[in-house]
Write a protein that binds this DNA or RNA. Sequence first.
DNA 1: AGGCCTATATTTAGACG
DNA 2: CCGTCTAAATATAGGCC
Lengths: 126, 126
Amino acid sequence: MITFSKRRSGIHKKASELVTLTGAEIGIVVFSPSGKPFSFGHPSLEAVANQEHPNDNTHLLVELTAKKGKETQPHWWETPVDELKHQEPLQMDAAVDLHKTFLAKLYEKPAATSSSMAPPMYFHHK
Amino acid sequence: MITFSKRRSGIHKKASELVTLTGAEIGIVVFSPSGKPFSFGHPSLEAVANQEHPNDNTHLLVELTAKKGKETQPHWWETPVDELKHQEPLQMDAAVDLHKTFLAKLYEKPAATSSSMAPPMYFHHK
DNA sequence: AGGCCTATATTTAGACG
DNA sequence: CCGTCTAAATATAGGCC
């Protein structure tokens, strides 16, 4: 648990460095062994994308449903994802195991500014 | 660019270690400065979750639309996210900048087995 | 791009406050 | 939980294939 905390910060730091050094964009979601979620990502979460994952023909649709209170929480990644909410397991394919996981997609504008990178990033938890 | 590659592997390795050492679950999506997407994650992508991000009242719905060809690509994270597909920018909120970003959520079953962790993980790209 | 190398810088575990 | 400290383990840049 202490190891988790330390290493989580480590990865977080590495991710920050990757962003500042190379201008890449990154998003990470981690769930601690105890189930606490932590999210982190580079630009800001302003819109989301929908993209096909060709190799397994998986199509993921990420949809932003509500957006308010933005002024007080400008950067979503500065906040913990907070409690998990259970819901009925999706019956897509029961092949592997009990774990349900995720995938995230990003969509970048054609000639978008690659600036706005690397505001100091934090990894909070609750 | 060489730095990006090396550090990307580094983060990937750290993520693997975090998983093996602590049993955490993690998912990462990185976009190289040139725009190439790389994904990585711990368990497998079998289902996805929908979860509220309380602090900014953002609600993200991640939906798995299609799932086939699984036999040949058992682990989604072993494959690159591949080419980005452009689509109309979402008009959710134009506040920040041109970048569109993402967020991912994970959903774990109540008393799920925390086993099945740490198969060697790879970071591919195209 | 990936692999191999080596010197240097960083991270880590573990103990402690 | 957060800091601080330490020795030991690891990541990194940069050169080279």
